[in-house]
């Protein structure tokens, strides 16, 4: 079972690096090209949601179990309460591509988790 995590300052300049990592991990987990691309989209949209909610750091964990379980933890920010259209779209897109999507905001941190099965 693969477990991989990374932590980084959250900014648009880091997105490509994270996307490439997500794609690579998807490939290692046996996802086909299209599914790996979808996983990249899901991770990007989640990070954008964290970024828009004001998070300044993020920790992303990928765990290969029944599908790829992804957890994104953002530090800081004020939660997902007021959504712009962009955020509405990100959340709806995530909802369409993954299973078990949860978005929570606690004290000083936001958390998004989902299971990507590549269907």
């Amino acid at each position: 079972m693969m477990l991989f995590s990374m932590e980084f300052p959250l900014g648009r300049e880091i997105m490509t690096t994270v996307r490439l990592t997500a794609g690579g991990l998807g490939s290692l987990a046996g996802l086909d090209i299209d599914a790996s691309e979808d996983l990249k989209v899901c991770v990007t949209e989640s990070l954008l949601l964290l970024l828009h909610s004001g998070c300044s750091r993020a920790k992303v964990t990928f765990e290969q179990a029944d599908g790829m379980c992804v957890t994104l933890l953002g530090e800081g920010g004020d939660g997902f309460a007021e959504k712009t259209v962009e955020e509405e779209i990100s959340a709806a897109l995530l909802g369409a591509l993954v299973e078990g999507l949860t978005m929570e905001h606690g004290e000083g941190s936001s958390r998004i988790s989902f299971v990507f099965k590549g269907l």
Binding site: D34, A92, A96
Partner: peptide, 20 residues
């Protein structure tokens, strides 16, 4: 529900079908 929330999965689904 908002139209953006409603239409996003529909559009994503059509695009994914096209890829498939």
């Amino acid at each position: 529900i908002k139209f953006a929330t409603f239409i996003t999965p529909t559009i994503a689904g059509e695009i994914k079908n096209y890829f498939r």
